[in-house]
Each structure stands twice: as C-alpha cells, then as structure tokens.
Nucleic acid binder design. Sequence first.
RNA 1: UGACCCAUGGUGUAAUGGUAGCACUCCGGUUUUUGGUAUCGUCAGUCAAGGUUCGAGUCCUUGUGGGUCAACCA
Length: 559
Amino acid sequence: MNEEKNSLNFIEQIIEDDLANGLAQDKLRFRFPPEPNGYLHIGHAASICLNFGLGLRYNAPVNLRFDDTNPAKEEQEYVDSIKHDVQWLGFTWDKELYSSDYFQQLYDWAVEIIKNGKAYVDDQSSEEMALQKGTPTEPGTDSKNRNRSVEENLALFLKMKNGDFEEGSHVLRAKIDMKHVNMHMRDPIMYRILKRHHHRTGNDWCIYPMYDWTHGESDYLEQISHSICTLEFKSHRDLYDWYIDQVYDPAKLRPKQREFARRNLSYTVMSKRKLLQLVEEGIVTGWDDPRMPTISGLRRRGYTPESIRTFSETAGISKRDNVTDVALLEYCIKDDLNKTAPRVMAVLDPVKVVITNYPKGNEEWLTAENNQEDESAGFREVPFSREIYIEKEDFREEANKKFFRLKLGNEVRLKNAYIIKAESVVKDENGEITEIHCTYDTESLSGSGTEASQRKVKGTLHWVSIKHAVKAEVRVYDRLFTEEAPDSNKEKDFKDFLNPDSLTVLEAFVEPSLKEANVLDRFQFQRLGYFCVDKDTTEFHLVFNRTVPLRDSWAKMEE
RNA sequence: UGACCCAUGGUGUAAUGGUAGCACUCCGGUUUUUGGUAUCGUCAGUCAAGGUUCGAGUCCUUGUGGGUCAACCA
C-alpha cells in the first residue's frame, strides 16, 4: 500500500494555492459547525471527515462549533449526541465552542455598524419586507425606515435588546443594496426578537443574531482560515464577505468560505427536516433506528467508525450534485468486518435434521475457527448432537447439479463437523417438511486428519445443535425507500416511496457462545451476513440487527 | 425571465494543456470446509457544436441539460 496520494481534492488544492501564495501553514485552522437541532447523518460525516481530515493532514486545529443562534429549534440533547458522534467517528476537536459565546461581541459590533450608518432598525411586517425584497429577476425597493438617523437606530436597537418590543415587531437590518443582483444582499436581517429561553444563555438575550451575521464573524473571531460549507451557501458568500469587511482588521487572518456538494446516498433521504419527519411520524423508531442514515442509526446497525471514514474518503468530494450508491457504503462495512468480525453460526429459518446413526444422548464440543481471515482470533467450541437445525433453504428433496446443498441421497459438509447424507424426510399433513433424516460419516470430523475428513463434498452448511441452541430475535433490514432518490421526484412526496418491507423480524437460533455477547458486538453469521447485538437485548432476550448480508451469488443465479 | 454553480463509464471520484486512471456495481474464470473472502479478467466514459493550439476532458464561445438563490431557519 502506498499512502502517497498525489491527487488533491479541490479544497486541498485551494489550501495548497494559499500556502504557495504566502499563507503560513500554522495559520491553518478549520471548524465543524453543526446546528444542534437534530442528529448527525452520513452527509455530516463527509463534512466531519473533510474538516478533521484537513486538520490531520496539515497538523492544524479543528474546532467543534455549535451554531446555536436559534433558541426555538436547538436543544442540549442534540449537542450531546453530536459530540458523541464526532468522538465515535474517531476525531478530536481543538476547542468546543458555541456561536452563543459571541452574542455580546456580535452585539457590540452591530452597534458599531449602526454608528457607521450600515444598519438600521425596521419595524415593518415581514410581509411588507418580503414584498420589497423583489425577486431574483426584479430589483427590490427600499424600506421606508432605511434612512432613519443613527441616533434613532441606536435607541431602537437598545430597546429591542432590552425587551421593550414584541417578538416580530422589529428587526435590525444591514444597509447594503435593495437592488443587488444577489437576493442575500438586499438589506438582510441581522437580528430578530425572540423571547425564548436559550439552551446556554438562558434568558439573557431576547434578540438573536441570524446565521449569516453570526457565521462569518464567528469564523473571524476563531481565526478560521478555511470555512467549508455545502453548496447551497454559495450565494451567501457575498454577505459573508461583506459582514467580515465591517469588522476586519488587516493584521488578522481573513477567513475564506468555500463550498462543496453535499453527499447524497441512494435509497434514503438526507435532510434533517425529512429525517425528523420520519421520527416524529413513527415511521422509524427514533433517530437511531438502524434504517436511518444517521450516525447513531448506522452505529446501532453495526457500522464501524472506520467503515464510515473509509466511505467518506472513497466517495470523495466535489462540486457536483451526486447520489452515491449505497453499495459503496455496504462494501466499506463488509470489507472492514470481514477482517475483524468473529464468525459464528446462527440459523434464521430453521428446519430440523435428525442424524439417525448418531448415538442418542451423545454430544460433542467441536473446535471452530473464530475468523479464517485472522489467525490471532483463535478458536471456540461449538456443541454438536443428534438433532440440529439447518436453514430451510439449504435443503431440497430434489435439485439440479447447481444446488450445492443438501438433497435426498446427497452429501454435504456441516461446517466444522461431519459430512452428512440426506436419507428421507418427515412431513406434516400439509406436506411441509418437519424433519430431515440423515446419516453421518463417522470418520469425517473436520480437522481430525482422517482420510474421510479430507473428502471434498461440494456444499458446506452452517447449523446449530437444537439442544444447545439459544433463541434470538433477529431484525433484518432492507433499504428504507424503494427509489434511488426518493426526494427528487417533483410530483410525489418522498414518503410515497417508503419500502413496506424495510424491517423483518425473525426468531432465530444461535450457537450458545453468543450468550456472552454484549451490546454493539459484531459477528459474522456464517454464510448469512454481519450482525450486531442491539441495545434492546436483555439478560433473557437476545436481539441482533443485520448490518449487511454477505454477497450471495447463489441467490443471483436463482433469479 | 436574472445571477451564480455544475457537466468524465450504471455510480462516485482522478488526470500542471501531453497515454482518460482508481473504487463500487454488473458479468465471467480460478481458489475455497462460508455459493463469503482472496485472486485474475471482461464490459463500460470526457453533454453538443464551433474555436485557440503541434496537441483540449482541461482554455474560449455558443448551445443543451441539471442545480442553487426571494424564512424574523441554519
């Protein structure tokens, strides 16, 4: 593996150019600035990996900054989950900061800007202001309050701050240009009155700064060299720069906003609003439902931090709209788990097999490798006895030569155990098979070194001893939506594309070693897929989530 | 009807103006006590038309297609 990656993404290219043009490397500083109004998702992971990745690459600090300027939507619960998720992904921030830390500084600056004649208090209704704003193709018109005197503006702004006005009655606006081609420059609102309790500043403030006014100034205060955000903020860049101009000291570093395309994943949605809707309407069980594209959902599903980081790196970044195939994400987790997950045996859809020539009451504890990919993973013991379960789909009374599994008159290897031969079946009144009677080759035990143990038989099946098996609930997940891009259809609502079969609950039987498993432990159920222990597990009730199935080329042939 | 952004195989992403590469997916072979893994291989791409140039995916022009922008949200 050569680690030298000589192709840079366009953000790295910009940084390299800045460095080449005289920016000192020790001035580099980045930030990840979530609003604490929801849980992080795989799209945020792209931003996290990008920013923290740059920090690592350039040995530069990365701040975690909560953009908490809207007390109506933000909660401590979200702050906590975001911190947890970033840490879980494996990143360490330099400082934990909050936009609300800058409320006083922002206020003081706003007063200066008023004094400079660059901001004014407007007491029109939001409808009036919207009307005056114009449209992308038509210029706006000035507010009747645009030319208030500095003294009057100062007095009104103070009253706003002191709570003398009702919510919604007054705003502070930047005085820029109502005819500007960029709508964001048409006298944008800097402050609004919100008589709300803030999760950090409590009731200290009843005016709250808007995003645009806050974000650039926060970057400037923290001396962030490169402020990276998603493409929809592109047209905010003029404003970002304008606001910094109002307070800029040339002796200081001037932050630079640059934008990249947000990452979309096929067969899911990625907007917080829509994810919140799924949660609130009970379509999923919560933000951490294993079907959700949230970090917490993926974690519960069994994804590793490593796999999500690899995914983000492999998918890369650019400025194009994209829908990344979820198959890439699945590849990343399979690749990781293949190297690390212990193998065990579990039967999800059981049928009983009786080995008629195996002594009644006898049992043996056989040795099984924990991971063929990793010798250091060692071995464990699995019990074998006269009656076992195998998967229903692993047996057919008759089948063609392509069917490498158990059929009447044919042999198959039981993984880590014996070669058995199907002799007959027992059926119930409906013709359903209730038992498969087999005989076993007594000399064929895996690893015994006998000639019979070396025999090549075409199929190998997983199994569990009925007497020793542990019951477990297994939750099998499928994609949440039936469409690749459920939210890009203009006629239909994204919920019209919900997959009704996104969750299937099975009662399965697992080998007894799994009784010791802890929540979030990950395993490969051999021949089936990767599974992890769900947090709903109790002492008496094991619950597994299927993270991802193994590739199944037989199922493909069958189609 | 304006401004801005984007356009490379099915998907994602590379390529100082100099051999269009990598990964996923699909398909096929080999190995295999997991129809997994590994390994080898196949198919498959520069939106279009002009221009500049010895040479254009890259620069220019026009067109086409997609996206973004008018919350007291971020």
